[in-house]
Nucleic acid binder design. Structure first.
Length: 448
DNA sequence: CCAAAGTTCGG
DNA sequence: CGAACTTTG
């Protein structure tokens, strides 16, 4: 038996479990195989590279980062290192699971820890008594709360012996991206710091303030959860014994993350296709005019202040407040009549926390095509939502400089006219709401 | 509490 | 078969 094993870190998952996994493998090298999605420039790549760089420093440069087809790369590395067994770092994620299982089988790879999924409960495990997946959140949550979960992996790289890969031709230097987007600090230490500071003075306000984009009432943990810098079970563990509204709400949000991962695991096709096939018949706008409207939305020049503020925050920070994500998504699908995939793709390109399961199914929920979707008649009013959730207009003024001269909540309705340079509304909301309802009604006509 | 019309879940 | 169904206006 060889003294050296290889541990393959599948894509972007589970940086946090790395030390525990390697402790199991006695002596091992960690191989991080970047896939093409994560090599595209953007906030997620920048953030991931920052995470890897920090990990690399903590481990004195003994992390292997490479790219390419794992079926070719992993055995070549194993040969070069004289490695014995090849281990897979984890359970498989919610998407691409079939392909990854095939790759693992081709490599003869052994999963190290069954607890390795970056979810509280691994996708595919919570099932109704008839064995099928849940399609509604609330019953899923009931089952999820009753389901046990094991303790999170312990972190701390000093428990691990590392192989020195010096001289390995396949080692890829971790590139540095330019800092065009203001990203949160990367890595496990930053994640823990954020979580502990939120526990100390954010959690008590969470239930009240989480819907307020002007108040920073959210946890700020999404990039860390996405990249495995913080495990959701660590969060649950630290919440144990708290039965208050804030703790219950945060648990529930973690459950949404598990729910959508489970839905995508059960229905991988829904990353691109409507979960509810009735929506295959809905009429979208797609011509040059639609492209122009999409561009106005993407650049934050729709003439609807809360929408523009959100879209500009996304470009500046690689992040947008969740309430505002719903508002801009409703606007794209119901006011502009564009396909939800256009918006979902834009989000994935720009969000540092962009996660395929949560993103696509969040969009489908808003569009009406998803699990447990918003009833079709629920069309967000962008002005009303702005007045309700940004009551003093501070969020809008922060991100839309043209509107800084308009005081208070009047910045949402702009009843006294628009400052020069700020666009007129690109659509009439009341009219487009009627149009959206009419198009929805059309989908029922032809039965099947 | 209602809108409109379901579907989903659990008993 | 009855009750329930994140995020509205």
């Amino acid at each position: 038996m060889s003294a050296i094993d290889l541990v393959w870190f599948r894509r972007d998952l589970r940086l946090a479990d790395l030390p525990t996994l390697l402790a199991v493998a006695d002596t091992a090298a960690a191989v991080f195989v970047l896939d093409d999605v994560l090599l595209r420039p953007g906030p997620r790549r920048s953030f991931l590279f920052d995470c890897l760089r920090r990990l690399d420093e903590a481990l004195a440069g003994r992390l292997l980062v490479t790219r390419g087809d794992p079926v070719a790369v992993i055995p070549a590395l194993a040969r070069e290192l004289g490695a014995g067994a090849v281990h897979i770092s984890a359970d498989f994620g919610p998407y691409g699971s079939r392909r990854d299982r095939a790759v693992a089988a081709a490599l003869g790879a052994v999963p190290l820890l069954p607890s390795g999924s970056p979810y509280v409960v691994a996708p595919g495990r919570i099932r109704k008594s008839d064995g099928t997946a849940y399609r509604v959140f609330t019953p899923f949550r009931r089952a999820w709360l009753e389901h046990g979960w094991r303790a999170p992996a312990r972190t701390g790289p000093d428990t691990v012996r590392w192989l020195d890969p010096a001289g390995l031709g396949m080692r890829v230097p971790i590139p540095t991206d330019d800092g065009a987007v203001a990203l949160p600090a990367a890595g496990e230490a930053a994640a823990a710091a954020r979580w502990h500071s939120f526990l100390a003075d954010g959690l008590d306000r969470y239930h009240r303030d989480r819907d307020r984009p002007d108040l920073s009432g959210t946890t700020g943990l999404s990039p860390y959860l996405k990249f495995g810098c913080l495990h959701p079970r660590t969060v649950l563990q630290d919440l144990r014994g708290r039965g208050d509204d804030a703790a219950a709400t945060l648990r529930s949000e973690l459950c949404w993350r598990d729910f959508y991962a489970d839905v995508l695991h059960d229905r991988p096709d829904t990353a691109q296709r409507n979960y509810n096939p009735r929506f295959d018949r809905i009429r979208h706008d797609t011509g040059p005019d639609a492209q122009r409207l999409f561009e106005a939305w993407a650049q934050g020049r729709t003439g609807f202040p809360i929408v523009d503020a959100g879209m500009r925050q996304l470009l500046a920070q690689g992040w947008m407040h969740n309430r505002v994500r719903m508002i801009v998504a409703s606007f794209l699908t119901k006011d502009l009549h564009l396909p939800w995939r256009w918006g979902a793709r834009h989000f994935m390109r720009h969000l540092v926390d962009g996660d395929l399961a949560s993103n696509q199914h969040g969009w489908q929920w808003t569009a009406g095509s998803g699990t447990d979707a918003a009833p079709y008649f629920r069309v967000f009013n962008p002005i009303g939502q702005g007045e309700k959730f940004d009551p003093d207009g501070d969020y809008v003024r922060r991100w839309v400089p043209e509107l800084r001269g308009v005081a208070g909540k009047r910045v949402h309705r702009l009843a006294d006219g628009r400052p020069p340079g700020y666009p007129e509304p690109i659509v009439d909301h009341a009219e487009e709401r009627r149009e959206a309802l009419a198009r929805y009604a059309e989908t029922a006509d032809r039965g099947d």
